[in-house]
Amino acid sequence: MFDIKSYEKADTVKQAIELLSANPDAKLIAGGTDVLIRLREGHEEFSSIIDIHHLEEIKGVEMQDNMDVRIGAGMCFTDVIESEIIDQTIPIVAEASGTVGGPQVRNVATIGGNLCNGAISADSVASLCVLDATLEIEGIDGAREVPVTEFYLGPGKIVLTHTEILKSIYIKAENYMGFGTHYYKYAMRNAMDIATIGCAAAIKVDEGKVETLKLAFTVAAPKPTRATTAEQFSVGLDATSENIEKIAKKALEDLNPRDSWRASKDFRLHIIETLAKRVITAAIIDAGVQL
């Protein structure tokens, strides 16, 4: 039993936004795997809920005419993993989604909820960062689009205002076509765990040289972060193991992981460098290039 004081069910995004603006204390609930945990812990700020669990408008995966991919923010991870469109276009999102919790969690937790929770360890976000995903947000004052890399403001903080809803995640064709990708979640356990470090890479290699590298990390800074110094450094380099090691070292310049009881800063930095190396290598192989 949860200490829920008010409950409203929204049947449309518009209605959800109206309910949000009518109640400054209300919180949205979709999959429930974050909100219900907070309620169980006694966090009263979650006791007024607006239920968007069943909201069809924010579900679905579609390929647009221009080959852009749209993922409904209300899609549960299992549906993301099992989507043929995602498998054929942006399999890294399915890979990353497969590392979330366990099957039961993936069967209900949503990809939008994962982002809106604001956790720096969110399993899906690094993959969306290297795909330069755009987030479609609708609010009482209209709609706007925000790049996923600008969605996070800090630990637990995101750009959504109280009256806004994350509707969809868009990945442009130019950001996935021709890229090799890979994601690795480093955690203490192989399931049901929080990432110590998450690392995603998307790479385009042309005639043995790096054309574009996108490298993103979670838990490596106060918010999910692209290693832009390493990315810029990599352009034009031969795709060799030696250079990958150099790129991996560069990645450390953009990141500033926490020293916490979960893991020391030194340890995280070592894992960041190791993952950068391995994930870039795997992405190059995924791009069909022999090292």
């Binding site: 366990g102 203490m188 356990r189 192989n190 399931a191 049901m192 765990d193 929080i194 009881w261 979960r262």
Partner: peptide, 16 residues
């Protein structure tokens, strides 16, 4: 006590 919960107490899963 930092980790009196299942997320942070690393009880092995079937994959571990």
């Amino acid at each position: 006590v930092y980790n009196n919960n299942l997320l942070d107490y690393k009880m092995p899963t079937i994959m571990d």
